[in-house]
Each structure stands twice: as structure tokens, then as C-alpha cells.
């Protein structure tokens, strides 16, 4: 094939780089590789080096001290709590996201008036900067001025002796550990839901209509059609949505930092926020790096799974 191409070139001579497929492929992929090395590879290597050193923000020079930071981090009860919280926060958020995004995607497949507006509104949280959106939620959960509390009081659920939620005037969303974690999860679900819905919509749209129609003709109930056709056919793409959501949630700092700063009493502290407090605010860069590296195994496994899923989807 190559010989044919060379022979066909007017003027003959040596082939340029554009004619050598292998070299051209490397050339074209080079910017992406360089980008990954510079933006991900180098900081990762630096994080590993920092975690093995005694670097501080005031003295970032590298004096290696072995695995001392990892040992110190593992002994820290706040770290262990943050590790547990990270899993709880991530898994709960993503489970809710998958269920809600499926419901939303199904609804958005149906024709109805103002569908474009609904789609736009659903996508809005994804387009807004995370910090801005979270600041908006901070007001929603405010201890004094929460509009949610106002509605609950208006409905008589809060602030009366017989109120279902108690006689106090406010819920104190961010001041009670369980409610604070729930608030953090709600905001994260709000943020990730648009992406997951769009992915699910794509999956549902790709199911051949004749398959559904055939099942209907055969008398399959909607529940059976969902179980036997929709779920199996959309599983690969739903899994990808789930895994992407895990990556976004597992590494998120903004929601926790803006809403609770890890409180009350560290009850919403997660690995990324604890990394920031320890590594930057407290100045212990080395321990901060060590804490952040505990996210790596989980993220690596998720990345491998995403790639496998993507390949499987490609084959299908």
C-alpha cells in the first residue's frame, strides 16, 4: 500500500512526514501527551516526592524522609474520618444521581411543551461555576435566613410546638452533622445531575425503536421492557456516567470547603478538603501530599474501569 502511495506521488523523491502514518500519528498525538505530562504527570511526580519529604509551604525544598508522612497520616483520626466520609459522600451522591438522572432522562425523552426550557434548566447547574452555585446553596442552608426553613415554617412543619420537625425556628442544616452531610450530598447531586442526565439521554436515544416495539407487540410490560431491554442496553453508558461522577465527587474540594469547611466537628471532612487544610492552610505540604495520594488507588481503579467500559461500548 505504502509503495503504491509513493509511486503515485508526482515528482517521486523521499516521502514527507505527512506520508508516514506512524510518524504522523506520533506527531498528532504529541501535544496531548505533552499536555498530560505537564499538567498531570509532573504534578503527580511532585506530589509523590513531597509526600516522601518534610517539605512545608515555607520551605518547599525536598529532604526525603521515607514513608514517615504516610505513617503519621494513618495515625491521624481526622484522616480516617475524612477517608470514610469521602466514600460515604461519593457513593451516596452517585447512587442518587444515577436514579434521578434515569428518571429525568426518561421524562425528557417524551414529547411535551416547553421541553427545551426544561432541558436548559436541567443543564444550568453544570454550566454555572461550582463555587458560585455552592455559595447560592450556602444561603439556602443558612442558619438564620434559609428559604428552605422559611417554607417549612410556613407549612407548619417547623417552629411550632406540634411541628413535625420540632419547635425550633431553624433546621441548622450546616450545624448538625447528619444534616450537614445531607446538605453536602444534595449540592453535589445538584451539580453532577445534568451531566449524568445528558449521558443517560444519549444511552436511551441509542436503543433501537424496533426492539421496544417488538417487545410491546409481544406483550412485555413496561417494567419488563425496562429490565430486559433498557437497562442491559444502557448499562455500559450508565456505568460510564457513574464512574465519571465518582471521579468528580471523590476529588471535589469546593462543595465541602464553601459549605462546611469540613465541620461540624470534622463530620463532613473529606480527603480533598483535609489535604487543603493540612497542606496549604497549616503549611505541612508533605502531609498534605501524602493525604492526597490516598485518593490515587481509587481513582486509578475507576479510570481503568472507565477505559474498559469505553472499549466494550466501542466493540458493541
Amino acid at each position: 500500500m505504502k509503495d503504491t502511495v509513493h509511486a503515485a506521488r508526482p515528482g517521486g523523491g523521499r516521502g514527507g512526514i505527512l506520508d508516514r502514518e506512524g510518524a504522523l500519528a506520533k506527531l498528532l498525538i504529541a501535544p496531548a501527551v505533552l499536555y498530560i505530562v505537564a499538567m498531570i504527570g509532573a504534578p503527580f511526580v511532585l506530589a509523590v516526592l513531597y509526600s516522601l519529604s518534610d517539605a512545608t509551604t515555607g520551605d518547599p525544598s525536598l529532604h526525603l524522609v521515607g514513608f514517615r508522612n504516610f505513617a503519621a497520616v494513618l495515625e491521624d483520626p481526622v484522616f480516617r474520618l475524612a477517608l470514610r466520609n469521602t466514600f460515604v459522600f461519593t457513593l451516596l451522591s452517585q447512587s442518587i444521581v444515577i436514579v434521578l438522572s434515569r428518571i429525568l432522562a426518561n421524562a425528557l425523552l417524551k414529547p411535551f411543551r416547553g421541553k427545551w426550557l426544561v432541558r436548559f434548566l436541567i443543564l444550568l447547574p453544570w454550566t454555572a461555576p461550582i463555587s458560585l452555585g455552592t455559595i447560592g446553596w450556602l444561603w439556602m442552608f443558612d442558619s438564620i435566613f434559609s428559604p428552605i426553613d422559611w417554607v417549612l415554617r410556613y407549612l407548619g412543619l417547623l417552629g411550632t410546638a406540634t411541628g413535625l420537625l420540632g419547635p425550633q425556628t431553624n433546621m441548622y442544616w450546616l450545624g448538625v452533622p447528619g444534616l450537614a452531610m445531607a446538605s453536602v450530598i444534595i449540592v453535589n447531586v445538584w451539580r453532577i445531575l445534568p451531566l449524568a442526565t445528558v449521558i443517560q439521554l444519549g444511552g436511551l436515544s441509542s436503543i433501537p425503536k424496533d426492539l421496544i416495539e417488538a417487545a410491546e407487540v409481544d406483550g412485555a410490560s413496561p417494567w419488563r421492557r425496562t429490565l430486559m431491554i433498557t437497562i442491559p442496553l444502557t448499562l455500559p453508558i450508565v456505568s460510564i456516567a457513574f464512574l465519571f461522577g465518582i471521579v468528580f465527587t471523590f476529588t471535589d474540594l469546593v462543595v465541602v470547603y464553601v459549605l462546611t469547611r469540613g465541620g461540624p466537628v470534622q463530620s463532613t471532612q473529606v480527603l480533598s478538603s483535609w489535604t487543603f487544610f493540612k497542606g496549604i492552610e497549616a503549611g505541612d505540604l508533605a502531609q498534605g501530599a501524602a493525604i492526597s495520594l490516598f485518593m490515587f488507588p481509587v481513582l486509578a481503579v475507576v479510570a481503568i474501569l472507565i477505559l474498559r467500559m469505553a472499549r466494550r461500548t466501542e466493540v458493541v
Binding site: 442558619s143 438564620i144 431553624n170 450545624g175 448538625v176 461540624p264
Partner: peptide, 21 residues
Amino acid sequence: MVPEVFAWTAVSNNQALIAGR
């Protein structure tokens, strides 16, 4: 006090005082 103190932020002083709370 009430549980709002567990969610205290840098602006809570201003808010609480101005709101008469």
C-alpha cells in the same frame, strides 16, 4: 446557644447581630 454556632462563619457575627438574633 443553638446549633447555629456549629455552622458559624466569618460573616455569622454580622448576620446574627443585624438580624437581631
